[in-house]
Simulated scan of single mutants.
Amino acid sequence: MNSVLVVEDDADLRAAVADILEDEGFVVHVAENGRDALEELGHMGHMPCVVLLDLMMPVMDGFAFMERFRADPVLSQVPVVVFSASVREPPEGASAMIRKPFEIPALLSAVAGYCPRE
């Protein structure tokens, strides 16, 4: 089963993205900041097919998360799609970027590019 990790500090947006992806058949894990995302990855038991990452978050933002994520030889194999309203270019190591606000088809297309249907 394909799983996706959604890292977003806005609870409503995090829940909406999770619901959309679950409706499409994905197993969704969520985290509200980069630190929580690193902890969640340690508990998952398997790597997600993609991480959807907000950049502007408290505690540990997406940039700090990317530094830690990409320094790990196992984690660095997982694609990261960042979404942001304020940043024009994705950080180094990001696989793709979606500008907020985004349309549902754009979200699903980005995820489908890294998570083939089983």
Rank of each mutant, 00 (worst) to 15 (best):
M1T: 15
N2K: 13
V7Y: 01
V7L: 03
D9Q: 07
D9C: 04
D10V: 07
D10Q: 15
R14S: 07
R14G: 04
A15S: 14
A16L: 14
V17Y: 00
D19E: 14
I20G: 03
L21Y: 02
E22F: 09
D23K: 11
E24V: 05
G25M: 03
V27K: 13
H29W: 14
V30P: 10
V30T: 15
R35F: 05
R35V: 09
L38C: 10
L38W: 02
E40G: 10
L41I: 05
G42V: 06
G42N: 09
G42I: 04
H43V: 05
H43I: 01
M44D: 05
H46P: 05
H46C: 12
M47F: 12
M47T: 11
C49F: 06
C49I: 12
L52A: 08
L52F: 01
L55P: 01
L55H: 00
M56K: 13
V59G: 11
V59A: 10
V59L: 07
G62W: 00
A64I: 06
R68V: 12
F69N: 06
F69V: 11
R70K: 15
A71Q: 15
D72R: 05
V74S: 13
V74L: 14
V74F: 13
V74E: 14
V74K: 14
L75S: 13
S76R: 15
S76C: 14
S76H: 07
P79E: 06
P79S: 07
V80G: 09
V81L: 03
V82I: 08
F83E: 06
A85N: 04
R88T: 10
R88V: 03
E89M: 11
P90E: 00
E92K: 09
E92A: 14
E92P: 14
G93Y: 09
A94N: 03
S95L: 06
I98W: 01
R99W: 00
K100W: 01
E103P: 01
E103R: 11
I104S: 00
P105I: 11
P105D: 08
S109Q: 13
A110V: 06
V111W: 03
V111Y: 06
G113F: 07
G113K: 08
E118I: 10
